[in-house]
């Protein structure tokens, strides 16, 4: 198998992963609204319908609950479904099947069954689609034992994590940031997986640790680059997986830098940043902290339509720079 890397977009990397999985395993299928001839609302499924036909790339009626349930039942009966929910906001319509059924089936039935279901969802703001098409709901799902919750931040991660999700025997929720679909990056050809239990240090530094997820990884990296001009050396960790969280990578980093900032797009209150902060306070890294932990997250409102208000509702690079500078220089 060749592993030569090419430049691919995040969307095409996901499509490539689905194609590889469907070629390798006849039980894998893709199901969702408009995933057929239309190619998916964000053109992620693209030409898969031509390659695999309508029996494996299945357009559902507009029925998120029924579609999710169908995939849960198919997964229990030996198939490996990929269920695309057109916007992650619509996962709220399928919550019974995800939270009460898929997440709990194995436990409730005493290990009798696994539910190898992958749910793919475009998430996040930035497209002017307003409050019902722009949310970041990953923390909701990460609160449910039985689910795994992943947020790929690059084309490389998008392909490798999706293939890993398809190998996983348990339900995996994949939150794909819709502003990342066009992002281009190096993606190896052929089959590879990115493990679903490891965060990744994407930039090493000694003055401050930023743990970021999804698109915020790129904003944090941009902020870190800018702050080198001020002599700050910032470590950036791509959380990658909200559940199960890779605590050790974060603990080790905080022990080194003694300062922690969490950045995510989802609403700050009761978010994943809160979990990371609490986890650090409970760990041996607490004694290494030189300053209070800082969290940046979405403001306490639904995502507004107006573009300026929309931007103001989620962390942006200038805000990350300011908060990181203050934290690193001990202003806070």
């Amino acid at each position: 198998m060749t592993q030569e890397a090419r430049e691919l977009s995040y969307a095409i990397a996901i499509r490539e992963a689905m194609g590889l999985a469907m070629e390798a395993d006849p039980t894998v299928f893709l199901m969702g609204e408009d995933v057929g001839v239309y190619g998916g609302a964000f053109q992620v499924s693209g030409d898969l319908i031509d390659r695999f036909g309508p029996e494996r790339v299945i357009e559902t009626p507009i029925a998120e609950l029924g579609g999710a349930g169908l995939c849960v039942g198919a997964a229990m009966n030996g198939m490996k479904p990929i269920f695309e929910i057109q916007f992650s906001d619509f996962a709220t319509l399928a919550l019974d099947q995800i939270v009460n059924q898929a997440a709990k089936a194995r436990f409730m039935l005493g290990g009798e069954v696994s539910v190898p279901l992958v749910v793919r969802m475009p998430a996040g703001s930035g497209t002017g689609a307003a409050a019902q098409h722009s949310q970041s709901l990953e923390a909701w799902f990460a609160h449910v034992p039985g689910l795994k919750v992943v947020q790929p931040s690059t084309p490389y991660e998008a392909k490798g994590m999706l293939l890993a999700a398809l190998e996983d025997p348990d339900p995996v929720m994949v939150f794909e940031h819709k502003l990342l679909y066009k992002m281009v990056g190096e993606v190896p050809e052929g089959y590879y997986t990115v493990p679903l239990d490891k965060a990744k240090v994407v930039r090493e530094g000694k003055d401050l640790t930023i743990v970021a997820s999804s698109i915020m990884v790129h904003k944090a990296l941009e902020a870190a680059e800018k702050l080198t001009e001020e002599g700050l050396d910032i470590e950036v960790i791509d959380l990658r997986i909200a559940r199960p969280m890779d605590k050790q990578t974060i603990i080790e980093s905080v022990k080194k830098t003694s300062r922690l900032m969490c950045v995510h797009e989802a609403v700050k209150t009761l978010g994943i940043g809160a979990e990371i902060s609490a986890m650090i306070c409970e760990s041996e890294a607490f004694d290494y902290l030189d300053a209070p932990i800082v969290r940046l997250g979405g403001t306490e409102n639904p995502i507004p339509y107006n573009p300026e208000l929309e931007k103001a509702s989620v962390p942006q690079v200038p805000g990350i720079i300011e908060a990181a500078r203050d934290l690193a220089k001990g202003v806070r």
Binding site: T27, G69, L70, G73, A74, N77, G78, Q97, N100
Partner: peptide, 25 residues
């Protein structure tokens, strides 16, 4: 026996999925 269910109606889509798998295979 694909199981009982504590959610009223919760098993119906799952049963349809089981039938979908039967047809696929």
């Amino acid at each position: 026996n694909l199981g009982a269910n504590g959610i009223v109606g919760g098993g119906i889509p799952i049963a349809v999925g089981a039938a979908f798998a039967v047809k696929s295979k």
